[in-house]
Write a protein that binds this DNA or RNA. Structure first.
Lengths: 168, 168
DNA sequence: TATTGTTATACTCTATAACTATA
DNA sequence: TATAGTTATAGAGTATAACAATA
């Protein structure tokens, strides 16, 4: 299954990979810490809240949220439980489909997002956007676009999301 | 401390941030899974092993490894213990400085790296380098270079690495 | 006193599988 | 039968603080 003898990566390829991982990893850490410090939310929770906040009714189904946040359903249930306990969201059975759960952001949840957002933007500017500059931002978008598209076409992890293939 | 009213991000800035996070997150996941499947090592462990393998004597001090892997010292100790148990490394007191621990990669460790490497390269090519293309690789390096440099100058997290400030 | 590393502990988060309920 | 979500469980990994030993 593996290539007979994989061509080693050249210096540029290695550098690109390492740079990407170093930058994203640092950024991730910084964002995580800012969110925790300023508003006691994790990155995942912030993503969910921000997404809910921008939804038409401040609502979303669990499944739709799970599509956004890559993780497993049980992981999302865990996060939802945490956020419900914190008063950021409510969960209630969906009206159309009794199987579904509708997640709705509360005023407390909205406030928390507002509270945390300035610092979040600040971190992004300081660590990523300012160093990039306007031109760098444009370049970055163009360069990463095809990578992202390629990733989206390939099933990210063929194991996970297929539910019908129970052929053992 | 926070900006009075943080300028919201424009679409391009948001897109750049999201693209970076999506690409790096997917890549991270894919790499993690490949390493686990092919050789039952985590990404962190692979990084450590790869670094040791490329060291002059296949050796390194714990502290030097900790500088490489961002995490805390205790986290590194944990990983080292796992890898020692798996037979990938040995730990012994350093000759120069009795406080230090010298970590050395074993033949088993080297074999494991070799075993995992082709698949690793394969993933990087498929998900990142091929979509980028030679030109994209170059562009990426140039674009991320200044970001990385800026990050390295700013203390990543001012809280962590200072040991002397016990003022409290 | 500062540095190096380990240990004990507690905590967060994740995935798997089994389960319930609805379509 | 398939889908939506929850729960129980188990595991990996991390950070904090206290610790021992060396410089």
């Amino acid at each position: 299954m593996a290539t007979a003898a994989a061509e080693p990566l050249d210096d540029g390829e290695l550098a690109a990979f390492f740079a990407l991982m170093e930058v994203s990893s640092n950024l991730q850490h910084a964002v995580e810490q800012q969110l925790r410090t300023d508003g006691d939310v994790s990155c995942v929770q912030f993503l969910i809240l921000a997404r809910l906040r921008d939804s038409p009714e401040g609502e979303s189904r669990m499944t739709d949220l799970a599509d956004l946040v890559v993780y497993s359903r049980s992981a999302l249930t865990y996060q939802a439980a945490q956020m419900e306990k914190a008063g950021f969201i409510t969960r209630s059975p969906s009206v159309n489909d009794e199987r579904s759960t509708t997640v709705k952001i509360t005023d407390t949840g909205r406030e928390r997002v507002e509270k945390v957002l300035p610092g979040h933007i600040d971190v992004l500017r300081r660590l990523l956007l300012n160093p990039l500059g306007p031109q760098g931002v444009t370049t970055m978008n163009k360069t990463l676009e095809c990578v992202r598209d390629a990733m989206r076409q390939t099933p990210p992890r063929s194991a996970a999301p297929r539910a019908s293939n129970k052929q053992k």
